[in-house]
């Protein structure tokens, strides 16, 4: 049973991840006074796409076809190291946060290469921007994790989020608040949400992630959409672990609260999306620099106390 519980968390994450974009969309529809698409829309989409026959550009090679699979594989592995409800993940070791950050990098690498493989000007543009924003998002994320390592004295994701307790919050509330804000901004940028990117626009010069996957279809597109929802789950789970430091010890209560928190994060994404406009493209790095400043400030505050 003890070995099965981490796996049950992983399984829940894999099954429930496509719910999160649906929740965000529902919240947006609520703010817009619309009924909106069903919460389960992504499940329907995935089921349909898996049954479709893809179309490939004559320009593209095996790299284009491998891109979505590599991206999804990297995210699946990253999710095995993601803590669930404050409990240890199936894969947990000292330095696993490096593995996770680099796996996100691998997914990005594969997506960007696949985009370049089509030879399309638009996809190249999206690829270039994705690479650019990552340069600012990743240091902010890593430094934030470093600050958490400094607070908790642990260097694995499971260790860090297992060691976050109410006492930690009482001792370092401002620092943890700053870090939560930084992670939230990084989540918005990494998951191509407003204000960094707009998941709704499919045909604009300003879009980033959506334009990179324009040419994918069928099961490949399903891999990409599922991978994107896993990525959102990853960040939402980390933020949920941050803001839920108390664990009752009862498995069902903890799990329920955690799932509520994850869905709450997704709802917050939807709320931000409803309340804000997309930033100008030139300003997106500034947003991420601000997130970096928050992480750095948190670390300095922690060290200076």
């Amino acid at each position: 049973m003890e070995t099965l519980r981490p796996l049950s968390g992983l399984l829940a994450a894999l099954l429930l991840a496509p719910l999160l974009p649906g929740v965000a969309n529902k919240v947006k529809a609520f703010f817009g006074g619309r009924k909106g698409q069903p919460v389960l829309q992504l499940y329907y989409d995935l089921a349909k796409l898996l049954r479709k026959t893809p179309v490939y550009s004559v320009t593209s090679t095996w790299i284009f076809k491998a891109g979505p699979a590599v991206g999804l594989g990297a995210l699946l592995l990253a999710l095995t190291a993601t803590p669930f409800a404050g409990r240890s993940a199936p894969l947990a070791f000292d330095g696993d946060l490096m593995l996770v950050v680099y796996l996100l990098g691998l997914a990005r690498f594969a997506t960007v290469l696949a985009a370049l493989d089509t030879g399309s000007a638009f996809e190249g543009m999206g690829a270039s921007r994705e690479a650019q924003f990552a340069v600012f998002a990743e240091p902010a994320f890593m430094l934030g994790l470093g600050a958490l390592a400094c607070i908790t004295g642990s260097v694995s994701l499971s260790g860090i989020f297992g060691a976050l307790t109410v006492a930690t919050w009482a001792a370092a509330a401002p620092v943890l608040l700053l870090l939560t804000a930084a992670f939230f901004v990084v989540m918005l940028a990494e998951n191509s949400r407003v204000p960094a990117d707009d998941p709704n626009t499919h045909l604009e010069l300003t879009m980033i992630h959506e334009v990179m996957v324009l040419d994918h279809s069928g099961p490949d597109l399903a891999f990409i959409l599922y991978g994107a929802s896993l990525k959102l789950w990853f960040f939402a789970a980390l933020i949920a672990c941050m803001v839920l430091p108390r664990h009752s010890g009862a498995w069902a209560t903890d799990t329920g609260l955690f799932l509520l928190a994850v869905i709450g994060v997704a709802a917050a994404v939807g709320a931000v999306e409803s309340a804000m406009a997309r930033l100008r493209l030139l300003k997106v790095p500034y947003l991420l620099i601000t997130a970096f400043a928050f992480s750095a400030l948190a670390l300095i505050l922690q060290l200076a106390r």
Partner: peptide, 24 residues
């Protein structure tokens, strides 16, 4: 911080190199 920044910049750099030589 340097590792993270260098890692992403190197990825951008080599995606650019291999993409513009071999892809498209």
């Amino acid at each position: 911080v340097s590792l993270a920044a260098v890692g992403t910049l190197a990825a951008a750099c080599f995606v650019k190199a291999s993409g513009s030589v071999f892809l498209g």
